[in-house]
């Protein structure tokens, strides 16, 4: 039973949040922050797979997010609503409620395919040169979207709030929130299981010594493809959710700045620590919200805080460790975890 404890706890927590949202006990602003926390958790944990566990330096995570956001949004608007560009709705708007997860996953798959653009050069390129390739992919994605006038180009793309409304007309519950919570749960659960299996630890072997990994039986190419596609696919799902929270996206959202945010969360939390990535995603999102009244000064204060933090904890909050290493008593709830035989 214990192995399900964390799952049940998370389900309960989600239920409380959803009930609170349903009963309008919290104001929509706080709810939105909660959803952004969720998005950031997906972004930082998925980037941690590549940057932390595999030890590459991907600086273009927002590009994959953009691909997912646009694919999911365009599919939804095309399928479920009547617009000038795409004509009348292909399917009845009420079916959005069932097909939303499908389009979300399709967005993730699309992003994973774009992830191949990075994965394939990574066979030969490492380190800072690969960082540039990820940067280039980020720019290419953003620039391609800007040049596609059908989906709004640089002006952006909207109509997703219509989809959310259509879903809520059928059953009136906060659907986006539900899907954010579900995706966060699935992401963390999936990554946790992946990196704790011998199969997944192959990517840590690549980080430690790629040559030894290749010679000692790890198919490094396949593992790199798996890691990059998994990471970018999850970022795509985060993007799809992000688009439906805002109801409006434009390519300017998915710049290096957004990628940098994800990067900071990974290194703040600690390379190769899932709990660290979650912790830093939550805290950074909240800190940024907390300092919002400072306006411009926010972007001076927060980086200064981070620099200070780096000086005191040069390995991030958690370092390489997981929560269960710091509090061994928790370990019994995560039987698959790390250090026990």
């Amino acid at each position: 039973m214990r192995r399900f404890t964390s799952l049940i706890l998370y389900a309960l927590l989600s239920l409380v949040i959803i009930t609170a949202a349903q009963g309008r006990w919290v104001n929509p602003y706080i709810l939105q922050i909660a959803m952004f926390v969720g998005i950031n958790i997906i972004l930082s944990t998925s980037l941690n797979l590549v940057n932390g566990y595999m030890g590459e330096f991907s600086v273009g995570h927002a590009g994959f997010m953009a691909v997912g956001a646009y694919i999911t949004s365009v599919l939804n608007v095309w399928l479920f609503s009547s617009t000038k560009v795409f004509g009348p709705a292909v399917l009845s708007p009420s079916s959005a409620i069932y097909l939303f997860p499908v389009t979300l996953i399709l967005g993730g798959i699309g992003a994973a395919v774009v992830g191949l653009l990075v994965a394939i050069p990574s066979f030969r390129t490492r380190g800072d040169y690969l960082a540039i390739i990820t940067l280039a992919v980020n720019y290419i994605v953003k620039s391609s979207i800007e040049n596609m006038q059908v989906i709004g180009g640089a002006r952006g793309f909207m109509g997703m709030s219509g989809i959310v409304n259509a879903m809520q007309e059928v059953v009136n519950v906060p659907w986006v929130l539900i899907w954010v919570l579900t995706s966060v749960g699935v992401t963390v659960w999936l990554l946790h299981r992946f990196v704790n299996s011998t199969y997944g630890k192959g990517i840590v072997a690549i980080r430690d010594d790629e040559i030894a990994a290749e010679i000692m039986s790890v198919d490094t190419r396949r593992m790199k493809i798996v890691a990059f596609m998994l990471s970018s696919g999850l970022a795509g799902i985060a993007g799809g959710l992000f688009a439906h929270i805002l109801g409006y996206i434009n390519p300017g959202t998915f710049t290096i700045m957004k990628s940098t945010e994800a990067l900071v969360m990974v290194y703040l939390g600690g390379m190769g620590s899932l709990s660290g990535a979650i912790l830093s995603a939550v805290s950074l999102t909240l800190i940024l919200e907390f300092f919002r009244p400072l306006q411009v000064a926010k972007w001076v204060v927060v980086p200064l805080l981070l620099i200070l933090l780096m000086l005191f904890r040069p390995e991030g909050i958690m370092g390489h460790r997981e929560f269960t290493d710091v509090f061994p008593a928790l370990r019994r709830f995560f039987p698959s975890h790390g250090k026990e035989k």
Binding site: F57, V264, M271, A297, V300, L304, P314, E315
Partner: peptide, 22 residues
């Protein structure tokens, strides 16, 4: 402190932000 060089890179990014927004 012997931090991994990627942490220094992140610090550099932060310094850039401080300069810009400062």
């Amino acid at each position: 402190k012997g931090a991994s060089r990627l942490y220094v890179v992140i610090t550099a990014l932060m310094c850039g932000l401080v300069l810009e927004n400062g």
